[in-house]
Simulated scan of single mutants.
Amino acid sequence: MRGPFAELEMALVHERDIADVATRVLLADGHANRHAGARYVLTGPEALTQAEQARRIGAAIGRPVRYEEVPPDVARERMVRSGVPAAFVETNLRFQAGLIGLPTEVSPAIQQVTGRPARTFDEWAAEHAADFR
């Protein structure tokens, strides 16, 4: 895998966790709805660098995957050339660059709302392994 900012950490959230939280919040009983007006920060249970994410995808597919860091200008060119809108690319690269060196928040909100722990990146990688083969 190639991209900028190999050491950028993120606590990626599983899409089914987002759906589970939304379902609980939207279907909660009317007047006693403890979610009314609440704002939840949804994250995965651990912060991982992009390099570590690649390694774990490799473990899920049964072959080594490494993250090769490229300069942001190279990443920008590749993304635009592959059809990603330039405005999105610029916003995404600025956002990622701004996160470098900042502590990554890991929120308990998924557990608090659903009553079970957030799914791990390893679970997500195993479920999506076919997408990477």
Rank of each mutant, 00 (worst) to 15 (best):
R119M: 13
Y67M: 02
V74A: 10
I110Q: 13
E68L: 12
R81D: 13
V84T: 11
A87K: 11
T104C: 12
F88H: 12
V84E: 01
A109N: 11
P108E: 08
F88P: 04
G62I: 05
M79C: 07
V70S: 02
P64H: 10
R119D: 03
V80S: 02
R63T: 08
V84H: 05
P103S: 06
D73K: 06
Q112R: 15
P85R: 10
G115Y: 03
N92S: 14
P64L: 07
L102Q: 15
S82I: 01
Q96P: 01
P117R: 09
R76H: 15
S107D: 07
V80L: 04
A118R: 08
P72W: 00
R76I: 02
S82L: 09
P85Q: 07
R63H: 12
Q111P: 06
L99H: 13
V70Q: 00
V80F: 10
E77A: 15
P117H: 06
S107I: 01
R94L: 10
R94S: 13
Q112F: 06
G83Y: 01
R119P: 01
V80N: 02
I100W: 01
V74Y: 00
R76Y: 12
G62E: 07
L93M: 04
A87I: 09
A87Y: 05
T91F: 14
T120G: 10
E77I: 08
I100S: 04
G83F: 00
N92Y: 15
V113C: 08
P64T: 13
P108A: 07
V80H: 06
L99P: 06
R116P: 04
S107N: 04
Q112L: 15
V70I: 15
R116Q: 12
P64I: 03
R119A: 14
R78W: 11
M79F: 12
V80P: 08
P71F: 01
T120A: 09
P103E: 09
A118L: 04
L99Q: 15
Q112T: 14
R119N: 12
R116T: 11
T104Y: 07
V106Q: 05
R81V: 09
E90A: 13
T120E: 05
R81C: 05
G98R: 02
V106P: 03
L102K: 14
P64M: 04
V70W: 00
L93G: 06
R76W: 06
Q111I: 03
G115H: 06
L93F: 09
I110C: 14
G98M: 03
V65L: 14
A87H: 12
Q112I: 10
Q111G: 12
D73S: 14
S82N: 12
S82R: 13
S107R: 09
A86L: 05
A118M: 07
E69Y: 00
A86I: 02
E68R: 15
A75H: 08
P117K: 07
Q96A: 11
Y67N: 04
P71E: 10
A97K: 09
V70E: 03
G115Q: 01
T120P: 07
